[in-house]
Nucleic acid binder design. Sequence first.
DNA 1: GTATGTGTATTAATTCAGTTAATACAGTTA
DNA 2: TAACTGTATTAACTGAATTAATACACATAC
Lengths: 129, 129
Amino acid sequence: MINLDYRDKRPLYEQITEKFENLISSGALGADEQLPSVRQLAMELSINPNTIQRSYMELEKKNIIYSIKGKGNFVTSDTEAIRRIKTENLMTDARNLALKAAELNVPLALFVKEFEKSYLTARGDARDD
Amino acid sequence: MINLDYRDKRPLYEQITEKFENLISSGALGADEQLPSVRQLAMELSINPNTIQRSYMELEKKNIIYSIKGKGNFVTSDTEAIRRIKTENLMTDARNLALKAAELNVPLALFVKEFEKSYLTARGDARDD
DNA sequence: GTATGTGTATTAATTCAGTTAATACAGTTA
DNA sequence: TAACTGTATTAACTGAATTAATACACATAC
């Protein structure tokens, strides 16, 4: 469910937080669905439970999950809100990148091509939605 | 010439490196122009000279500046090399962004459209190279 | 009830990158 | 010679991230 990238310079708890955000906003984890327990995920990733705990705290602060003591952590019911936020963040990134590209006179076609290639590769070279 | 942002979570030497890259690629610092000395800039920014030294080492590794012992650090005369570096950085950003978009199932067309719009706006709504 | 699963909280130790500090040495210029 | 430059090295400090070891509270199944 979660893979860590030890080359990534960001802290583990941040990586984990982002992975769950993506799983949720992409619909892989639906509303009120239960997340892996702190201890189980820690075991699975071979890291300390406190690191998972920190990630879950972050997610709860952002209202992306809610927790019930003794039961577990669950995805918020308003998953569409998350998707909107993530999408808008991504669009903002796209705009900023476009401004930089324009500033450096990098040809638009070249840029779009590189972009599409990565996108399609990530999706498996097959889809077009 | 350089301003530090202590809210920025990146290390100081990285910030400084990037500032110089921008000053140079924008032409504010021309070919063979001298950079501030390690000690002087450290004094000006109230940080340790070793931090500046590290930034300059990074810039030299990237062939953006060259140094002459006893004289100082100077902007490379090969400004095209700088352009190549900046362009490659931008392409890397594009690839990473595409991966995120794919992960979040944001439709490619939507994304590319937003991108092109910003690009063309930045260029003046007129060009198409 | 007990056992075992959950979340939560706390405190200490560790690790590592970034940064500071203090020097020393080498080349340039006046 | 004096006062600049860059370069290199070693030690110490700092703070964030992570690990470690517990303890406590709640839920569920037996």
